[in-house]
Design a protein around this nucleic acid. Sequence first.
DNA 1: CTGTTAGCGCTTTCAG
DNA 2: CTGAAAGCGCTAACAG
Lengths: 325, 325
Amino acid sequence: MKVITIKDIAQLANVSPSTVSRALKDHPDISSDLKIKIKGIADALNFKPNSFASNFRKQKSQLIGVIIPKFCNSFVPDVIFGITSVVNERNFQVIILPTNDDILKENEAIQKCCDYRVDGILMSLSVETSNVEHLKTADAYNIPVVIFDKAANTSNYHQVVINDRLMAEKCAQQLINENRKNIIGFFGHENLAITKNRKIGFSSILSQNNLPYSIEYASSSIEAYEKTISLIDSNNIDAVFGISDELLIGIIAAVREKHKLNEISVIGFSDGSTIPLLFPEVSYVSHDGKKLGYEAANTLFKLIDDNTFHPKTNAINVELKIGRK
Amino acid sequence: MKVITIKDIAQLANVSPSTVSRALKDHPDISSDLKIKIKGIADALNFKPNSFASNFRKQKSQLIGVIIPKFCNSFVPDVIFGITSVVNERNFQVIILPTNDDILKENEAIQKCCDYRVDGILMSLSVETSNVEHLKTADAYNIPVVIFDKAANTSNYHQVVINDRLMAEKCAQQLINENRKNIIGFFGHENLAITKNRKIGFSSILSQNNLPYSIEYASSSIEAYEKTISLIDSNNIDAVFGISDELLIGIIAAVREKHKLNEISVIGFSDGSTIPLLFPEVSYVSHDGKKLGYEAANTLFKLIDDNTFHPKTNAINVELKIGRK
DNA sequence: CTGTTAGCGCTTTCAG
DNA sequence: CTGAAAGCGCTAACAG
């Protein structure tokens, strides 16, 4: 079956292609009679404009590039869902480029976005990324960028993050309120601003209160699980903080296996999709990925619509939900 | 900063744009001296071909449309991850179009894929979709389609699914081996082939063995949780089957709250990302989303490369992992 | 081996 | 109010 173009309609209507183009987008210059006629023909033939061609002509792709390290857990998919909702609303499409936490792939992804002439980039940094120099490529193509979630501590780009430090402080404060005395904190990769900021918040409050605590690192559920198991065996811990759903799952698995769910307080950052229903005793900072996605995408569109908009870091509000004991 | 085009390079090299185009893609007609010269200039100017333009010219987008109902859980993201790996490997990009389980949006999504002239469509059906007539649109544009996971029971499209019926049979058989007598099965939306097939498998084995069982439906963790709570209160159930991670989480939460984890056997379909670590006592059919994604994307590329390839439904192998008691 | 030319489908001045 | 013509950046016949 042949795909209909503007030319075909023009021939049938005995007008020029430009007239068809104008009529179909309700250009005021075209008489309403002609509009009706042309639209009738277009409908009859089931004409759909080739958005590829029109975007090419307009030198915009109507594409937003989303660069992420991984799909892990439900947080990232939630963010993507939030982004996609906003982006589709504006009749753009999202292309997703995972970097697998590899800075080389991150570079390639930025380049791909430029090759595809995306109209904007949303990016969450890989653990290997300590500066954002490689985004200069996007600048050269005048593509606006918003960094979300895994951000840089200093950057000249817009950033949408959650208030990591403050919320980690609240977690620590909660453990103090519960009168915990022997606290462990599990964190992710040290390169990431979210690790740094959450660690600062967590540590500072405990130090101020002269409470002993120790810092552990883990990069998977299993690792967090194994470390927690041995910590429970060797120390008399009474509280564990986990920086993400992934680590919390390992921590909880270990605490449950050791039958310590009533004695050890577990707290951390979670999207609230799984843990609260299964373990209502766990307290968590509910970081809603969708909300972050909405915010990041909206910020990007502000930038697309008005490139005089000034770069800033925008922390969205999240809540600490106290577990039921 | 100006974006470099082939023309710029042609001027600097004193050759025609077509020569540049050919030289850059190692066309055998071009002398190697000239190739070196042209590539040198291109590198020096940091030229990157506008893939948008070249795709337009070649009438291909290098885009694969992925139409999914939701992002829920980690299964779908895993599938997308699998798809993206294969697709990126081939230098294509993925665009994701969520339908939110709405058949109207599904229609729109198909149309969007056509508008964007994607080179292939991977699609998982919405719960509202009972036939695949609307895919005719894609046929009209000669866009190959592969349906994955949430498939139609009869269709003329390629399908990549897991062997739902067989694996549900194995689950039922496992409960029989465990000598369970009072079994509940939780299923999702009745429209979906995966529900139908898993229900048939589950029911047939239990019926054959003259075991009583009852069928429940739930569309969220909470619903499964609430129904399980009241079933435990009112019946003397000793086993619960759940069709997905989402339902299993609700079921497990209820069983745990009622302190019945040792008495009630829980079994179902899961991606194995969360449940096994937290609840090693649960048996599950490990349906690996990545594998499904790889398979679906590879099938699509076979179709793109060779459109004489015949439609068929391809069930990938999965495994039942028995929980530790 | 290299250049000329036309054109992918659409939009948008410019001219009438 | 409508048409003619140019062009987005690249590719590929065709010609030499």
